[in-house]
Amino acid sequence: MRRTKAEADQTREAVLAAAIDVFLERGVTRATLEQIASAAGVTRGAVYWHFRDKQEIFAALERRANMPNEAVGDRLTARLSTQPDLDPLRELADAIREGLQAFETHPERSRILTILWLRCEYSEDMQPVVTRQREADLALQKLFESVIALAATRGRLAPILSPELAARALLLLVNGSVLDWLRAPGEFELTASTMPLVAGFLEAISAPKAQAAADQARLALFLGV
């Protein structure tokens, strides 16, 4: 009997949900397709219908964990490009808060991150996933850098760090906080504990308001507006 697309999609979701459970329990290296199929209540053939191997399942989970960050970044970029009166650093803080809250309100994302960062032994056959994780981090750092550079052009950045170094420091701060939270589940709230650090860092690299106003005035004079 031919299966409908809805049934196929349901099976695929069941396999991914089961893979999360198995990877968390056994680690990625020791987990097998048989264990994933059993946990999903499907045959191994059903797993192979959707995924070539365990690495492809892992890659699908990795993409699922990173996609919300891309959406948050797209919204932030769109807001800043269409509303030049916004404070880029404040908008960046709001976007980071949104991303952190997504981890806390969507348990699947935090479980997948736990697998990616704490339950995975990155062997040679997992290198494509390692590369994608690195690319995702670099994309987030580039987003931070572009927003911080925009703050500089609007006279709202103190000459403490370059946008590149500030973005790198902010990425390490956020990733380190998330990793600490994953290592101690339930012991503290991610957003509540991280945002004061983010706010403090962004405050430290912000130009004083008087200086920012003066820089904006000089820029307006230069542009003749």
Score class of each variant (00 low, 15 high):
A31G: 08
P159K: 02
L171H: 15
V15T: 06
F58K: 02
A192C: 02
V147E: 09
R26Q: 08
I112C: 06
D74L: 13
R90Q: 14
L86M: 12
A37K: 01
G200M: 09
R52M: 06
E135L: 15
V198G: 04
A37N: 02
A71W: 00
S123I: 02
A17S: 15
A149G: 03
L100G: 06
A17K: 13
W181D: 03
A136L: 01
Q83G: 02
A18D: 05
T29H: 12
V178W: 00
K209Q: 14
L86F: 13
I96Y: 01
V22P: 05
Q211V: 12
F103A: 00
A158M: 01
S146C: 11
A152I: 00
D53M: 09
E13W: 06
S146I: 07
P185L: 06
I57L: 04
V47H: 03
E70Y: 01
R52F: 09
D180R: 12
A184M: 12
L173V: 06
R119W: 02
G224N: 05
G176T: 13
R156P: 02
A169M: 13
A169R: 12
A169W: 09
I112G: 04
T82W: 04
A139T: 12
V15C: 11
L24I: 01
V198P: 01
A31Y: 06
A210Q: 13
R64T: 14
D87W: 07
V225K: 09
V28H: 03
A17P: 05
T105C: 01
R30Y: 12
L170W: 07
M67Q: 13
A184E: 14
A78D: 03
Q10W: 14
Y48F: 14
A204G: 15
L86R: 14
T105E: 08
A151G: 15
Q35K: 07
A220V: 09
A65P: 15
I57A: 07
T114W: 00
G186H: 08
Q55L: 03
A37E: 03
T29P: 00
A212S: 15
L150V: 06
A152D: 12
A18L: 03
S206C: 01
T105W: 07
I115T: 07
K209E: 14
